[in-house]
């Protein structure tokens, strides 16, 4: 794999491998908390903070953590940062904490974070890992903001809690309901696929060369096959 610049790594998370629209990772938050744009921003920034911090720490410790206990070590570090975020948010942003509810603590099991720790931070230096965490986190935030903007404007006729027509006019309730979340997410994913579609891999490209996810996982299948031989 050729070496990527910091900017490329950052852009990669933001657009090319956007965790929500391209990798389809961590689908819980984009469906559950995108009923209002302010929730989406809060959730996105909390996730970004955890992602950047855990990527940096895991990358710094990548030679210290033995292979046998790497997943327990990663999840302990991630859970630590998530708890710190939720304690701070409870103290200083109580209303946001209340409206995010259980989904804030659920950042621990957001597979974007463990995914980036395993795929990227544990194999790269600190600075690229920081860029990757920031890019992925902001990509996630942007995705949440786009979904919630569509849902809040169409479903509640408001944006960031500011109502357009007062309380007497109702929006299309469908977009506030869970079905609306799936609909908006599906449409946006399709749109992203149309805009950024790459040529499909040729069938005779066996192994990681023909796999669209190879750049994300760093060719782990080929490596495992080589190890097995």
């Amino acid at each position: 794999m050729e070496k990527k610049s910091i900017w490329q790594i950052f852009r990669n998370g933001l657009i090319d491998e956007n965790p929500t629209f391209r990798l389809l990772l961590g689908m819980c938050a984009p469906l559950a908390i995108t009923t209002s744009a302010s929730n989406a921003i809060g959730m996105g920034l909390a996730t970004t903070f955890v992602l950047v911090c855990s990527n940096a720490v895991i990358s710094a410790l990548r030679r210290v953590i033995p292979k046998e206990v790497r997943l327990p070590a990663f999840i302990t570090i991630i859970a630590g940062f998530v708890t710190i975020v939720s304690l701070v948010m409870q103290r200083y942003f109580a209303s946001l904490y209340d409206s995010l509810g259980v989904f804030l603590e659920l950042i621990v099991v957001n597979c974007i974070i463990l995914g980036r720790a395993e795929m990227f931070a544990s194999k790269n230096k600190v600075i690229p890992s920081l860029a990757d965490g920031l890019g992925m986190g902001l990509g996630f935030t942007a995705a949440l903001l786009i979904i919630s903007t569509i849902r809040e404007i169409l479903g509640n006729l408001s944006w960031f809690g500011f109502s357009f027509f007062g309380d007497d006019v109702s929006g299309m309730l469908f977009f506030i309901l869970p079905a609306g979340a799936f609909f908006v997410l599906g449409m946006l994913t399709a749109l992203m696929n149309v805009i950024f579609a790459k040529k499909p891999a040729k069938k005779n490209d066996a192994g990681c060369a023909g796999c669209p996810g190879a750049s994300a996982c760093g060719g782990s299948c080929d490596r495992k096959e080589a190890e097995a031989k």
Partner: peptide, 14 residues
């Protein structure tokens, strides 16, 4: 030992 140390450090931070 490594996992133990990580847990202790995280607990202290929390």
């Amino acid at each position: 030992l490594v996992l133990l140390i990580i847990c202790v450090v995280i607990s202290a931070a929390l």
